[in-house]
Design a binder for these strands. Structure first.
Lengths: 260, 260
DNA sequence: GCTTTAATGTTAAAATTATAACATTTAGTG
DNA sequence: CACTAAATGTTATAATTTTAACATTAAAGC
């Protein structure tokens, strides 16, 4: 290693600290060395900076795009999710006040909300908030508290009271497990209060889950299946699965597999 | 414009929502069109996605690297901000519970927090929360409410009560204006309650402002100058400016201009 | 169903970026 | 001060990305 190299990287890191990119040629000029030297600094030394298309960007830096490639699988997985949300979208109307649950299931829905004139979204998830914050037509209410990184969501002891004060119209709930006997469950206990409060206040409750969640039980049970008005899912078999044993289950919507 | 194009972009946006990059060739395959079409989508339509070195990355997305080029001036401007925060950093100690104000001033501080073993950060700003959420060693408490896009922060009527419940150790406050007579002010009224509550509860209050804020008055006054224990600023003239008229002002820290 | 236009695809050339090999400079050592 | 080794610079070449022009296909209107 090399002291001068480390100094150069520190300088560049400072310049990039609050975002933005710096062209390799400018970085070289800034440090008064050749482009090749900067290149070598980046490959030789251990740094938070990546070179992407001739530009230096912060990688693996808090809150900043990590530079890694999405695999094709990962990318195509979004397609399935996208279809699921497309169906849930049919239930959303102009002017609604929506409760959006945490997790990744409902994320594809959010960008679609830009097509409405005016909506309100209530959430306790950071990733949901970020997506909604970018939409000028959607009023965002974030329920704060202590941050739980695993679910990218917040928990607090007055979550229930905070939710009950809001005029939530429709609740879109996701889950990690759905079982006819035991009901609907998730991984984290701090999610129970907001989910239950939302289900209690909302006029209409939608459970949005892909079929892999059926017949699965997770640690934190939060609702019975018939607390929901609609179950939106993505596989043909799911309705039968739910209806067997002669049980009454809510309306089930399965997006047709043939989507353009 | 074109509906199909918008759909493709929404799809790609979803795929990129949680960070990472997607190669143009994979994006084309995912959408089942040619690379050229994706290229055109990105240049024709208004999108949060940028093409950088053949890879799609999120740009201008909350908490994610905005893709713009830093001019050499800008790059050195970050150095100034960084130095300002570097000085404020000297006041932070292991185990502190920090209140971090909204705005861009304190952002360079946040990445530095990774060097501590354990901290707690309380904030009502989305950009701050995003930066802190990425730090595994920092406990994050976000004070939620209605989102105000202009300041990337939340406002609610029980902000004061929520802050008083927390054991905040040190408050790092930023401002848009500082005036000897009128005191310290900001742009948005919803920021007043959290700032005041934090100043009231914290054991130590730091005002972190660059010198351009002096002798400036903004719509929402929230504190007097001597409500603070320390003023951290970045210009030699500032202390004199504050001390004239024989007024008592808090300890002032000016980062030395001579930094390697 | 024909015409027209918009959308998409294809190809080749230009520009840019990455890699590798070798030349030169600089710093340290006896 | 020469010698050595590390660091940096230079150049040429290869790979990739961007741009532009034109061909093809699909959609919309009459």
């Amino acid at each position: 290693m090399n002291g001068r190299s480390a100094l150069r990287l520190a300088k560049l890191q400072e310049a990039l600290a609050s975002g933005g990119t710096l062209h390799l040629r400018d970085a070289a000029e800034l440090c008064d060395v050749s482009e090749m030297t900067i290149r070598r600094d980046l490959t030789t030394q251990d740094t938070a900076i990546s070179l992407l298309g001739g530009r230096l960007v912060m990688a693996n830096y808090p809150g900043v795009t990590p530079i890694y490639d999405l695999t094709e699988q990962q990318a195509s997985h979004y397609q399935a999710k996208y279809r699921l949300c497309q169906r849930a979208l049919a239930y959303i109307e102009e002017g609604d006040t929506l409760f959006i649950d945490c997790g990744s299931t409902l994320m594809p829905l959010l960008s679609q909300l830009s097509h409405f004139r005016e909506l309100t979204v209530v959430t306790y998830a950071l990733n949901v908030a970020n997506a909604v914050a970018a939409l000028p037509n959607v009023r965002l209410v974030l329920l704060g508290g202590l941050f739980y990184a695993t679910s990218q969501s917040f928990g607090s002891d007055n979550m229930t009271a905070a939710i009950e004060r809001l005029g939530i119209n429709k609740a879109l709930i996701s889950a990690a497990g759905v079982d006819l006997e035991r009901g609907v469950s998730c991984f984290h206990f701090h999610e129970v209060a907001p989910k239950q409060a939302a289900i209690a206040t909302a006029m209409q409750c939608l459970l949005v889950v892909d079929a892999s969640k059926f017949s699965v039980i997770r640690p934190a049970y939060f609702a019975a299946l018939d607390d929901f008005d609609v179950v939106v899912t993505d596989e043909e078999g799911a309705p039968q699965l739910l209806k067997e044993n002669g049980r009454v289950v809510p309306e089930i919507v399965v997006p047709s597999v043939t989507v353009a």
